[in-house]
């Protein structure tokens, strides 16, 4: 197992090089000039010496291959470069923006699993009956309603009309955030004993997490239903039933554990995707996360930010996949890595 994990971790190096190279090449083909973002149209046009100076300072006077090598060299020293859009080190930006995204992703996936799995089980157990149809309808709605629309409707109903949801953002506008330890407001407020912020942060997470998680919830519930149905019809379940085990024990202990394996894969991948930012949800809920940061970076042709965040996302996918693979072994005793 250790050797397997080590091998997978070593994969990070060639993958990182590949991902940054592709990101570099793509950003270079866009017909726009980062100097414009830096200097504005007026100075960029009227002041050639400023243009030359800034090209040099930001390294744009070098050919692409040299710039790529310089980037890798800095990266090896833990320096992700400076963002053109925020004028700060990309590493600092990631440290500021990523926790908001991570917190939202964790709660969204938690919602999706806590609702999606039972829904799938109910549907499978009551296969073909009313409960199945209702569960399938909920699942289908969750996975087919566009997230930006769901977000707007949810805010209109729960915030504007019923007035049960708090305003958008991570905390009430007049509250000061808890002292930064992890950057996750729920965790930091717990660690510092700031109960006002804790309750407030949880309340603020509820709506965006449900909106972002709705899609995943639908997916999870449909997968659980399908694979549970298949498992319930398999030989070992028949054996278990013939041994006289209770239906409850058959479904929850024998069948469900096996049926969850494909679900774990999907949840892992979706979680990795959500951890890299959800632009639409973050925009509608004014959530200062990585998705909006990356969207702004892309529009400002912010090389360092785009390449570094792409790299980070690749790392997240590798890490999550690794966790998922290890999870297989725990769920299915037949799977062993050597």
């Amino acid at each position: 197992m250790t050797a397997f994990i080590l091998r997978r971790l070593l994969l990070v190096i060639p993958l990182g090089i590949g991902v940054t190279l592709v990101a570099f090449l793509i950003t270079d083909t866009i017909p726009a000039d980062p100097i414009l973002t830096l200097l504005g149209d007026k100075t960029a046009t009227e002041n050639p010496s400023a243009v030359a100076l800034y090209r040099h300072q930001w390294g744009f006077d070098q050919p692409l291959p040299i710039r790529y090598v310089i980037y890798l060299e800095h990266l090896a020293h833990g320096d992700m470069g400076n963002s053109i859009v925020t004028r700060r080190p990309v590493l600092q930006d990631v440290r500021d923006f990523w926790p908001a995204t991570a917190e939202l992703a964790i709660f969204a996936v938690a919602f999706a699993v806590l609702v999606g799995v039972p829904l799938g089980v109910i549907a499978a157990v009551h296969h073909g009956r009313l409960a199945d149809n209702v569960a399938r309808f909920v699942a289908l709605s969750g996975s087919s309603i566009p997230v930006f629309w769901l977000a707007l409707v949810a805010i209109q109903i729960f915030y504007v009309q019923l007035q049960v949801a708090p305003s958008i953002g991570r905390l009430d506008i007049d509250l000061d955030p808890p002292r930064t330890i992890t950057g996750l407001y729920t965790v930091d407020s717990l660690l510092t004993g700031n109960w006002t912020d804790f309750g407030n942060a949880l309340a603020h997470l509820a709506l965006p997490a449900m909106v972002l998680g709705a899609n995943v919830m639908g997916l999870v519930s449909r997968m659980v239903r399908d694979s549970l149905l298949r498992t319930l019809n398999s030989d070992f379940v028949r054996t278990a039933r013939s041994k006289g085990l209770s239906e409850r024990r058959v479904v929850y202990v024998h069948a469900l554990r096996n049926a969850l394996i494909p679900t774990v894969t999907v949840v892992g991948l979706v979680f990795a995707q959500l951890m890299s930012g959800a632009v639409l949800t973050e925009t509608t809920f004014a959530w200062p996360g990585l998705g909006r940061y990356l969207a702004k970076a892309a529009m400002g042709l912010d090389f360092s930010a785009i390449v570094s965040v792409t790299l980070l996302v690749a790392f997240i996918f590798i890490a999550v996949n690794l966790v998922v693979d290890v999870g297989y072994a725990l769920l299915d005793p037949r799977i062993r890595y050597s």
Partner: peptide
């Protein structure tokens, strides 16, 4: 306050 979406701003 950064409110990127005009519908949200209205709400």
């Amino acid at each position: 306050k950064d409110i990127p979406d005009s519908t949200t701003e209205r709400q």
